[in-house]
Amino acid sequence: MTNATLRKGAATVGGQPVTLVGPELKVGDQAPDFKLNKDLMTEVTLADYAGKIKLISVVPSVDTGTCDAQTRRFNVEADKLGDNVVVLTVSVDLPFAQARFCGAAGIDRVVTLSDYKTRGFGKAYGVLIDELQLDQRAIFLVDANNTIRYVEYLVEMKEHPNYEAALAALKELA
């Protein structure tokens, strides 16, 4: 990788250290813009969610147990949130796989977005696993002005995020 921050050993997969590409974002940072696929041809950016509070749930793949549980949990919670909040689940899965998963799992309140084309989201948000080209599990809460208000980078890929802490931070904002 050139011109990118490499954070060696910042995370683990099955207990084995891996390298995350990109900066470690902090509370108070401006959320980096992104370009993600909503479907094969439709791209969205941070501006598409202007004025909304954004809970960004990053998962390596919706086709794994922990990612499935994380996406389902936020789908249930999203139903309780106001219209000024959007829950985005980001992975490098193809949009076809995301749509299939959502249909089979009854996911209808979470917006799934794919980082498959350039891994640009992963690099900008510091979650791209260099060795696997998957995005490491993380949670970002971004306010209506695109300031990061909560961030959790999971160290081990298989671990669940702290749902209660993320939701408490979200309720304070909403």
Rank of each mutant, 00 (worst) to 15 (best):
R119V: 04
E43F: 07
D115T: 07
V76H: 12
M157V: 15
D29S: 02
A97Q: 05
D108Q: 12
E24T: 10
K123M: 08
G15P: 02
F34K: 05
I139E: 02
N146W: 04
T2E: 14
V151F: 00
V151A: 07
K123W: 04
L20W: 01
G126Y: 00
L170F: 00
L6G: 02
A168T: 10
L173T: 00
V111R: 09
G106D: 01
E43P: 08
V142K: 03
L132R: 12
D63L: 11
K158V: 15
L113D: 05
K54E: 01
V58G: 01
R119M: 12
K171D: 06
R109L: 08
L6K: 06
L81P: 03
K54H: 01
N75T: 00
V18H: 07
M1P: 14
A104Q: 13
T147A: 11
K26T: 08
T71D: 08
Y116V: 11
V76Y: 13
L128E: 03
L134M: 14
V21W: 06
Y125S: 07
G22V: 04
I107C: 04
V13Y: 01
I139N: 05
E156Q: 12
R149Q: 14
K123E: 10
K52F: 00
D143V: 00
I129D: 01
S91H: 11
V151Q: 07
L134Q: 13
L170T: 00
G122P: 06
M157R: 14
D68Y: 03
E131V: 11
P23V: 12
A105E: 15
V151D: 05
A78E: 09
D29A: 03
L36G: 04
V142W: 03
G82I: 11
F140E: 11
T112Q: 09
G122Q: 00
P17Q: 02
V155D: 12
T112I: 09
Q133K: 15
G103K: 12
M157G: 10
M157L: 15
A169D: 00
V86M: 04
N162C: 03
R72P: 11
T12L: 04
Q30W: 08
K80P: 04
T42V: 11
V85K: 08
C67M: 02
R73S: 10
K158C: 08
I107H: 04
K158P: 11
N3C: 13
V111A: 08
P60N: 05
L94I: 10
K26E: 04
A174Q: 15
K54M: 03
F96W: 09
L36T: 06
Q70V: 01
A138S: 09
T5Y: 03
L55W: 02
E172V: 10
D33Y: 08
L40Q: 12
L154T: 00
K8H: 14
V127M: 08
V155C: 09
L40E: 14
V58C: 05
N84H: 13
Q70A: 10
Q136I: 02
G15I: 01
A11Q: 06
G9K: 10
L88T: 02
K117P: 04
R109M: 09
E131T: 09
A104R: 10
Y116A: 11
V85G: 06
K38H: 08
K171H: 12
M1D: 15
E159A: 15
A168Q: 07
K171T: 09
L25D: 07
A169N: 02
T42Q: 06
T71Y: 01
C67R: 06
A10L: 07
G122A: 00
G14Y: 01
